[in-house]
């Protein structure tokens, strides 16, 4: 659940858009709690990452990050991808999200998620995402989700 991305934007140029979106993502309290950063943003695409953190460990025997933290990263990334899509006017919220856990994230490594909003209607945005550690060949997890398209004041463009 993520509100509008355009708030606080400084300009319409690419750098301004990313700067504004980054400031926005990093102002979400839970994204901040996990030290997430917005690394890239394009039309309908986003990349968000977060550092390894001992507080997020789900398996104390191995030091592997809890799946829930991976979900939080991917949900945030999906929301950012929806809001960066030209067909999305205002905010968005998660309708459903399916996460497949392929393997344990390697302890100590940064987790990087990327998401694509591959289709959008007046009401629904369809998103795919994946999360990687330092091994780019095999994702840690993938996700597919449907998100609301909020048209606060005005309706779809």
């Amino acid at each position: 659940m993520v509100p509008r991305v355009d708030e606080g934007m400084t300009g319409m140029d690419e750098n301004g858009k990313i700067t504004g979106a980054r400031r926005f993502i990093e102002s979400i309290p839970h994204a901040r709690a996990l030290n997430m950063t917005l690394d890239d943003l394009a039309e309908g695409m986003a990349a968000v990452s977060m550092p390894y953190d001992a507080r997020l460990v789900g398996d104390p025997q191995t030091g592997v990050i809890h799946g829930g933290a991976v979900s939080a990263l991917m949900d945030t990334c999906c929301g950012a991808a929806v809001m960066s899509h030209p067909g999305s006017a205002a905010g968005t919220a998660t309708l459903d999200l399916r996460i497949d856990y392929m393997r344990a994230a390697t302890p100590g490594q940064r987790l990087r998620a990327s998401a694509t909003c591959h289709h959008i209607t007046r009401s629904v945005a369809f998103v795919r995402a994946s999360a990687h550690d330092d091994n780019d060949d095999l994702p840690v997890a993938t996700a597919t989700g449907a998100f609301t398209v909020d048209t606060e004041g005005g309706g779809p463009a």
Binding site: V2, H30, G67, L73, M74, D75, T76, G91
Partner: peptide, 24 residues
């Protein structure tokens, strides 16, 4: 807790927090 918020305007729980809570 404030750190669980995903939408400060509403405010609402972060979808990722909901996911993590249910998975836990």
């Amino acid at each position: 807790d404030d750190k669980l918020i995903g939408n400060p305007q509403l405010p609402a729980l972060h979808g990722g927090v909901t996911a993590a809570f249910l998975e836990t």
